[in-house]
């Protein structure tokens, strides 16, 4: 037995911190979350760990205005399916954006955020969310 969430979260830290999934070397398909068996090739599949680049486009999205207690402080929040450049789709919140500016096709990148907490004294779960790609200027000399 373990305190709520502890072992369940710990065992997938790699996957949720760094969007680590896998790729089937037989059919060249990327999977996230990592799969135990390639659904296309089954016993002929060869799965290897793969760390996604964390870049993609919004496939669909919604603005959540009715959510469980844990999300109250964030409402309204945007949650989306992001189509990663490697092909897999992933469900995640979109942050650092005004909900009304989100649209299908928007370019986003993975960022690191608090996903949930198991109460005030419990475990904090961290992982991926996505945000619009940030402008990078790289200062020229003044």
């Amino acid at each position: 037995m373990a305190e709520k969430g502890v072992a369940q979260v710990w065992r997938k830290i790699r996957a949720i911190y760094n969007i680590q999934g896998n790729i089937c070397k037989t059919c060249d398909t990327h999977f996230f979350p990592p799969r135990l068996v390639c659904p296309n090739c089954r016993r002929k599949g060869q799965l290897e760990d793969y760390k996604f680049k964390g870049l993609g486009n919004i496939h669909t999205f919604t603005i959540v205005r009715q959510a469980p207690e844990d999300f109250k402080r964030q409402m309204p929040y945007v949650v989306a399916q992001v189509e990663l450049d490697e092909g897999a789709r992933i469900t995640a919140q979109i942050v650092n954006v005004d909900p009304e500016d989100v649209e299908i096709g928007m370019r986003v990148r993975a960022c690191f955020r608090k996903i949930t907490e198991y109460g005030g004294g419990g475990l904090i779960v961290y992982g991926y969310k996505f945000e619009p790609v940030l402008k990078v200027t790289g200062h020229p000399y003044p």
């Binding site: 369940q8 669909t60 919604t62 959540v64 949650v79 995640a92 919140q93 779960v125 992982g127």
Partner: peptide, 21 residues
């Protein structure tokens, strides 16, 4: 639950995904 619900994709949100699309 682990890969949709936990991150805030409520059940209505998933149907909203389909509706939006």
């Amino acid at each position: 639950w682990e890969w949709e619900g936990l991150g805030g994709a409520t059940f209505p949100a998933l149907y909203a995904f389909m509706a939006r699309r």
